[in-house]
Design a protein around this nucleic acid. Structure first.
Lengths: 295, 295
DNA sequence: CAATCATTATGATTCTCACTCATGAGTAAA
DNA sequence: TTTACTCATGAGTGAGAATCATAATGATTG
């Protein structure tokens, strides 16, 4: 079998012009190289080089093998460097899973500096998983999960990055607009707009409506946050979103934010990683950036 | 260092889905593979795979290394096959040296079937050497020499392929045209055209003129046989060429061929190879073809 | 033309490291 | 549970790779 070693010897001998010099470079004795090639020749029934005078001359087979070496060795050496990058955590693929639809813009603000800081890291964002984000993280579909619903397990580690409150968004002309807070009963006659996930994953149900055994008059879904806000602006329903959305681009929209219940629904966005990987430098780098710009 | 072996293991494990199966295919124990990769991981400070359930999952580094394996291993395997071709003599480079200018056309007739018969052999023809053809053969500049002047040595082996006679070519209107043979003195007043080589390598000198201590009135050279014939046709001089040239394309030219001296200059074309290489199959193949079509 | 130098080849010896064996530990299937 | 199958791991062994010493051979030099 042709081995990396044989190719390396051949290339080095060709470069330095002698077995002795090549041996020195490769940190073995001249004898070792001589033996190695002699054995190779014997195994393959072919001459690689011949002694001519005090030097060597490559045979045709040797010349050929040299071209192979010149082509293949650089590939392996590059792989070697990439592997070192992996070892130092400089390189990898950070597949980010998003379970928090409104966080898209926040993520964008993190991603920009991250990409320049870790140029060799593949960065990928996914929002659709086979099951939920936790499963995706456990199943190595993703490497980092952005979620408002952390589930501490022995395998996963979550770190909160910022807190927020879920509020009811209504049009400023809406009957409820004058209130500071709403109760579950207030929604009985409303059309509720949410992102398209199962009801068990909607806090407005699990922590607000269901405990009070209330349901909205109607429930519809919208794909994007923008669409949801537009629908609310058009008076086509009410929705539940993080409070900070109004403090940003939506601040000039004709929308009012109302607290849900007496104390509001308090949440926090968490970043989840597999336990043990939080020290991987390019993952740690992301966590650090996320903690810096909390919102 | 990344070694062929590591890549092979990774690829086989990926193909068969388990270390155990891969080990069987690679003719080692499962333990060996496990140890090998463990050592590799330790050396590089990196995980290649992780145990999950009863199977394995490649890490990112492992996935990367797998792509390297899929790319590099086929190259080495191809090199392996080529090397086998070399060993079996199916492949090589046949660098043919020509010391016989008029043989060009003869060589072409050999080359055509040869190229189809030995598709993997590089075929190259050289006519210019640093010194002479023998030196080129000894110095591995060429692998086969076509020459009318063989020099038997312990290192070289010559086989004659066909005999011919060197004749004087004159225009049919030339004063000598009526004779059957010419003597050295007949050339004293002629312009002699030869190929551009040293006089010692021209039989017309060494075997005809010099022994009789004669010289032509003038001596000029021409690069190609065609040009030499054209010059003779134009009555611009006489030349010395193999007799069979007239039996071919030159047969309808206004040229007469005269014997040189009483018994003529008899020659034969020889193929020379380095002793020991005559059994190399692609060289032997050429010799066989050459002997078949003698002219 | 010796004498010296510089190169590769080769035989004998040493020793490393890759492999095997035996077994443990974890997981999935029965 | 039990069984079956997987990979991991520690200890021991042997093949083969490296070394050392030296021969052989060709170049260089005074």
């Amino acid at each position: 079998m042709i081995d990396r070693q044989h190719l390396a010897i051949l290339r080095e001998v060709s470069r330095r012009g002698s077995v002795t010099a090549a041996a020195e470079k490769l940190n073995v004795t001249q004898s070792a190289l001589s033996h190695t090639i002699a054995k190779f020749e014997e195994r393959h029934g072919i001459k690689i080089w011949m002694k001519t005078g005090r030097g060597l001359r490559l045979t045709q087979a040797g010349e050929y093998l040299l071209t192979v070496a010149e082509r293949v060795l650089p590939q392996m050496e590059h792989a070697q460097r990439v592997l070192t990058d992996f070892a130092l955590g400089r390189r990898g693929a950070l597949r980010v899973g998003m379970e928090c639809h409104p966080c898209q813009r926040w993520l964008t603000r993190i991603a920009t500096p991250y990409l320049t800081q870790w140029p060799d890291v593949d960065f990928d964002v996914r929002t659709a998983f086979r099951f939920d984000g936790i499963e995706a993280l456990l199943g190595y579909e993703i490497d980092l999960l952005i979620t408002p619903d952390p589930v501490e397990t022995p395998e996963l580690l979550f770190t909160p990055v910022f807190d927020y409150e879920l509020v009811l968004m209504v049009h400023e002309a809406h009957p409820l607009a004058g209130q500071v807070r709403v109760q579950p009963q207030d929604l009985l006659d409303e059309e509720l707009i949410t992102v398209p996930v199962t009801l068990e994953r909607l806090d407005i149900y699990t922590r607000f409506l269901v405990p009070a055994n209330c349901r909205p008059r109607q429930h519809r879904t919208a794909e994007t946050i923008d669409l949801m806000l537009q629908l609310v602006c058009a008076g086509r329903g009410v929705t539940v979103l993080p409070d900070w959305l109004l403090q940003e681009d939506a601040s000039r929209l004709p929308i009012r934010a109302l607290r849900l219940g007496d104390s509001g629904i308090q949440k926090s966005i968490n970043l989840g990683v597999r336990r043990g990987e939080e020290t991987t430098s390019y993952i740690d780098g992301f966590l650090k950036l996320a903690r810096q710009r909390e919102r």
